[in-house]
Amino acid sequence: KELVSALYDYQEKSPREVTMKKGDILTLLNSTNKDWWKVEVNGRQGFVPAAYVKKL
């Protein structure tokens, strides 16, 4: 599985998104959309802005 690192804090703005803190390591589930990537963090799945994470 592919991992990404959070470059910035992000506070979810809808139920489809997830909150992350800078430095968090997230499991990348889907990166086909260039703007929003689906990740899993702390057992929750949702979307984060692609520009806020980088692949490890």
Rank of each mutant, 00 (worst) to 15 (best):
R16S: 13
D24E: 11
P49R: 03
G23N: 06
D9G: 05
G46K: 02
E12R: 13
V48P: 01
W36N: 02
S5P: 03
K38S: 08
Y52A: 15
D35G: 09
A6Y: 01
Q11P: 06
W36I: 03
K38R: 12
K55Y: 12
D9E: 06
Y8R: 14
V53Q: 00
K38G: 06
G46Q: 02
R16M: 13
A50D: 02
L56C: 13
T19K: 04
K54R: 12
Q11E: 14
W37T: 04
V39S: 00
K54A: 13
T19Y: 04
L56A: 08
K34A: 13
V18F: 11
L29W: 05
L26R: 00
E17G: 13
K34M: 10
L56N: 07
E40H: 05
T27A: 10
L29G: 00
L28W: 00
D9N: 08
N33R: 09
V48T: 01
Y8W: 12
R16F: 14
W37C: 04
K38L: 15
V4Y: 14
V53K: 01
L7H: 05
L29P: 00
S14H: 12
K13W: 05
S14C: 12
R44N: 07
W36A: 02
V41R: 11
P15A: 13
T32C: 15
V18I: 15
K1F: 14
K1L: 14
L29A: 02
S5I: 15
Y10V: 01
N42E: 10
Y10F: 07
G43D: 07
K34Y: 08
K1P: 14
L3G: 03
N30R: 06
F47W: 15
T27Q: 11
I25G: 02
K22C: 08
K13V: 09
T32S: 14
L28K: 01
E17Y: 06
L3H: 09
N42W: 05
V18R: 02
A50E: 04
G23M: 03
A51F: 10
I25W: 06
K21G: 05
Y10R: 02
Q11D: 14
D9W: 04
K34E: 12
L28P: 00
W36P: 00
S14Q: 08
G46T: 02
M20T: 03
G46W: 03
E17S: 07
M20S: 01
W36K: 02
E12S: 15
K21F: 10
D24M: 12
L28D: 01
K38E: 15
L56Q: 08
G43S: 06
W37D: 00
V41N: 11
A51W: 12
A6K: 01
S14G: 13
